[in-house]
């Protein structure tokens, strides 16, 4: 091993305060997630055939969001990641919601009182 390959350790530079271990999600867990996602798909199709008026899109988006959260937590391992990764994911979705809300507030209020 040459000199530059020797590893030196600067304790101040270790940014793994949680000492997060690499968690391996088991195939059994993946199978349960798989089943839940297929069930969710079936539910979406069945729910769409019932006339629930304004509740139809709410239910459809509710099921889709639940499926997305399951995928993010288990298939994408976020449940077992460090706080940094969890915060990053949450910040992304939060920022997206802020953008949607602010833009919608413009469209909703632009002709306020003019109709």
């Amino acid at each position: 091993m040459t000199a530059h390959e020797q590893h030196y350790h600067d304790p101040a530079n270790v940014t793994n305060p949680e000492h997060s271990e690499h968690h391996i999600v088991s195939p059994v867990q993946y199978s349960m997630v798989f089943g839940a996602l297929l069930l969710g798909t079936l539910l979406t199709v069945l729910a769409a055939d019932v006339d629930l008026g304004a509740m139809n899109p709410v239910i459809a988006l509710g099921i889709a969001s639940t499926k997305a959260v399951i995928v993010i937590l288990f298939f994408m391992h976020v449940k077992y990641q460090s706080h940094l990764i969890k915060m990053t994911v949450a910040c992304g979705f939060f920022t997206f919601l802020v953008l949607i809300t602010l833009t919608l507030s413009d469209y909703v209020s632009r002709a306020w009182g003019l109709w």
Binding site: E5, T15, N16, H19, E21, S82, G92, T95
Partner: peptide
Amino acid sequence: RHHFETEEQQREAGSFGMWLFLLTEIM
């Protein structure tokens, strides 16, 4: 890679970077 102190640090940095990319995809 030599610029990472530990293997966990390298792995977390990689996941962090990948998630940042996915956030741009969300947008």
